[in-house]
């Protein structure tokens, strides 16, 4: 990121949510997934969204990332009202500004690790050779220098998630959203993945939002927003986590 971005980062929150609601309606049921969410996330911090299954964490993450529209309320990501964007603008916004880490890694098994990392760059029009080279560099950064040409099928869960983190960082996004990044991993590997996220993904000009219900990783959050029944019930500093 350039200086201009860094300056912008310093002056505005990464995410602002005001009165965000999300209602899923079907023929025979209405589900209030989010019931008036208010919070802010700042660049340079890792915010954890925690709570029991079904409390609305992932829905909130999807809405913040612009892949789901909220029913009401306002969401601004680095000052941009994502909700008011047209679908094509929203897609372009995600491509420029948001990195994704998924619970199931979602790597393409037929691509090598380096090629997987290169995918967001290819989407941005970077030449293949340059994109894959950048992929190799990022894999080195996450400790997988010797696995760049290996298929994800031959990597452990922890290694796959590290590839996914490298992929999320590849386009140098200003926001990385992680959906249960440790849920498919054993405890120790989960800790390593969170350490990696904390040490490499979080940057002065980048915010990382992690949805998790794994209490063993709460200590990695700079702040922890607890959710219950579609509401944020408390936001506290990570240091306060006992």
């Amino acid at each position: 990121m350039g200086d201009a971005s860094a300056t912008a980062v310093a002056t505005e929150p990464a995410i602002i949510c005001r009165g965000v609601t999300k209602v899923f309606e079907s023929d025979d049921s209405v589900v209030h997934a989010l019931r008036g969410i208010d919070f802010e996330a700042r660049p340079g911090e890792m915010l954890l969204l925690v709570g029991p299954s079904g409390c609305g964490k992932t829905t909130l993450l999807s809405v913040v990332a612009g892949i789901l529209d909220q029913t009401a309320g306002e969401i601004r990501v680095y000052g941009q009202d994502v909700h008011s964007m047209k679908p094509a603008q929203k897609t372009a916004f995600r491509l420029r500004n948001i990195g994704f880490v998924f619970q199931q890694f979602n790597l393409v098994p037929s691509l090598t690790a380096a090629e997987n990392v290169a995918v967001p760059l290819l989407l941005r029009g970077v030449k293949r050779a340059a994109a894959v080279q950048r992929g190799r560099e990022l894999l080195t950064q996450v400790g997988l220098a010797d696995k760049t040409e290996v298929s994800p099928l031959h990597l452990s869960g922890g290694q796959q998630q590290r590839v996914a983190i490298a992929r999320a960082m590849a386009p140098e996004p200003r926001l990385i959203v992680c959906d249960e990044p440790t849920a498919s991993l054993d405890g120790e590997t989960g800790q390593h993945v969170m350490e990696l996220l904390k040490s490499t993904a979080v940057a002065a000009d980048r915010c990382v939002v992690v949805v998790t219900h794994d209490s063993r990783v709460f200590r990695f959050g700079d702040r922890i927003a607890e959710m219950l029944d579609g509401r944020i019930t408390s936001i506290r500093n990570g240091a306060e986590h006992g």
Binding site: A65, I67, A88, T91, A92, F93, R94, L95, R96, I98, F100, F102, N106, V119, P120, L123, R124
Partner: peptide, 9 residues
Amino acid sequence: GTLKAMGAT
């Protein structure tokens, strides 16, 4: 779906 989420048109 992953590609779409990441910003593929």
